[in-house]
C-alpha cells in the first residue's frame, strides 16, 4: 500500500547544471524512446536521489502499513478472515522487502534506510498514522486504501527506473487480491446485521479523509515537478489519480447503500469531473510533520522491533563479508 508523498525535494534539477550535457541528453533520449534505466546505467545525481527517496518512502509505508492491520490478525473473526488477513499483511511486509531491494540498487543500504525512518528523516505514507479502531476499519483499509494504492502503483509502474517498475508490477498483482478480499469483507458487513452495517459505515466515515489525503494535495506546477515528469519519475498528477479513484469506487460505495461523509462530493456529468469538499490540507501537513493520532506509536513500535531484533542481525554479520547490492 502506498500513496503519493507530496514532499518532493525542492532542489531537484539544480544539480543538472553540473551534469555532463551529452550524457544528460542521451539519458533523456533513452527515456523518451520508452526504454528503462537499469542500475548500472548512467543517471543524473538528482534522478538517483529522487528515486531513492521515493522508493524508500514506499518501502517504509509497507512495513509501517503492516501495523494497523496486523493488530487485527489476532482478532479476525473466523478461519477464513484470519487466514486471509495473515496472508495480506505478510504480502505487505514482502513488498517492503522487494522495495528495499529496489532502492538498494541505487546505492543506499537497507540498514541506512531503516535508520532514516526511525529518526524521522525519511517519511512514509500519511494514511498509516490513523488508527484501525474496529474490525470494519481493516475491511475499509483493505478495500479502499489498497484500491487507491493500486491506482498509484499501476501509474508508477510505467515509470523509467526498471527495478522499481518490476517490483511494482509484482506488488500490483498481489494488491489486486487484497482489494478483492477487502471488498468481500466490506460487502459482508454492509449486507450483514444492523450492528455490522453500522460498524462499516462508521469505519468509512473515519477513513474518508485519510483516503482523500492519500493521493496528496492538488499539484502546483513547478520546475521540479516538470523535470520529474520528463524523467518519468512522476507519472500522473495527484488530482488525476484522485479523480480515477472517485470514478471507480464512489459508485461501488453507493451501490452498497453506504454514504460518503462529504456533502460536496458530486460528479459533473458534462465535464466528467468530480468535485469534493476540502479535506483539510492543514491536517494533512500536520500529520506528515509528525502530529497525527498514531505517528509516535507507529515509530515506537518499529523502533522496539528494531532494538529487540538487533542481536539477531548482529549474529548474522560476517566480519569478512562485503556489502553487495541485491539483484532486482
Amino acid at each position: 500500500m502506498y500513496g503519493n508523498i507530496s514532499i518532493v525535494d525542492q532542489a531537484i534539477g539544480k544539480k543538472n547544471a553540473q551534469e555532463d550535457p551529452e550524457k544528460l541528453a542521451a539519458f533523456q533520449a533513452k527515456i523518451d524512446r520508452g526504454e528503462k534505466i537499469e542500475p548500472h546505467d548512467w543517471m543524473p545525481a538528482d534522478y538517483r536521489r529522487q528515486l531513492i527517496r521515493m522508493i524508500e518512502q514506499h518501502a517504509h509505508s509497507e512495513i509501517i502499513g503492516a501495523l494497523p492491520e496486523g493488530t487485527w490478525i489476532t482478532r479476525a473473526p473466523g478461519f477464513k478472515r484470519k487466514m486471509a488477513l495473515m496472508a495480506k499483511v505478510q504480502d505487505e511486509v514482502g513488498h517492503a522487502q522487494l522495495l528495499y531491494n529496489a532502492a538498494e540498487t541505487l546505492g543506499k543500504p537497507r540498514e541506512e534506510m531503516i535508520n532514516d525512518l526511525l529518526t524521522g528523516k525519511s517519511k512514509y505514507s500519511n494514511v498509516f498514522n490513523y488508527p484501525a479502531k474496529t474490525w470494519a476499519d481493516t475491511a475499509v483499509i483493505a478495500w479502499l486504501i489498497d484500491a487507491a494504492a493500486i491506482i498509484n502503483q499501476v501509474t508508477n509502474s510505467k515509470g523509467s527506473y526498471a527495478p522499481y517498475c518490476r517490483a511494482l508490477e509484482r506488488i500490483c498483482q498481489e494488491e489486486s487480491f487484497h482489494l478483492k478480499y477487502g471488498y468481500d469483507n466490506v460487502v459482508t458487513l454492509a449486507t450483514g446485521t444492523p450492528t455490522q452495517r453500522a460498524m462499516v459505515q462508521e469505519a468509512l466515515n473515519r477513513w474518508w479523509r485519510p483516503i482523500m489525503h492519500f493521493f496528496g494535495p492538488p499539484d502546483i506546477a513547478s520546475v521540479h515537478s516538470e523535470i520529474l515528469t520528463r524523467w518519468k519519475v512522476k507519472m500522473a498528477s495527484n488530482d488525476d489519480m484522485r479523480q480515477q479513484f472517485f470514478n471507480q469506487y464512489v459508485p461501488k460505495i453507493w451501490e452498497l447503500g453506504l454514504t460518503v461523509p462529504d456533502p460536496e462530493l458530486r460528479k459533473d456529468e458534462v465535464t466528467g469531473k468530480w468535485s469534493y469538499g476540502d479535506p483539510d490540507w492543514d491536517e494533512f501537513k500536520r500529520v506528515i510533520n509528525g502530529d497525527g493520532p498514531c505517528n509516535k506509536e507507529r515509530l515506537a513500535v518499529r523502533r522496539m522491533a528494531e532494538i529487540n531484533g538487533e542481536w539477531v542481525r548482529n549474529a548474522l554479520k560476517k566480519p569478512t563479508a562485503k556489502y553487495t547490492v541485491p539483484l532486482s
Partner: peptide, 14 residues
C-alpha cells in the same frame, strides 16, 4: 502470527 510486522529482520517476519 503475532510476529507479523515485528520480526528481527523482514525475512523472519515473513
Amino acid at each position: 502470527s503475532e510476529w507479523t510486522g515485528l520480526g528481527p529482520i523482514l525475512e523472519e517476519d515473513i
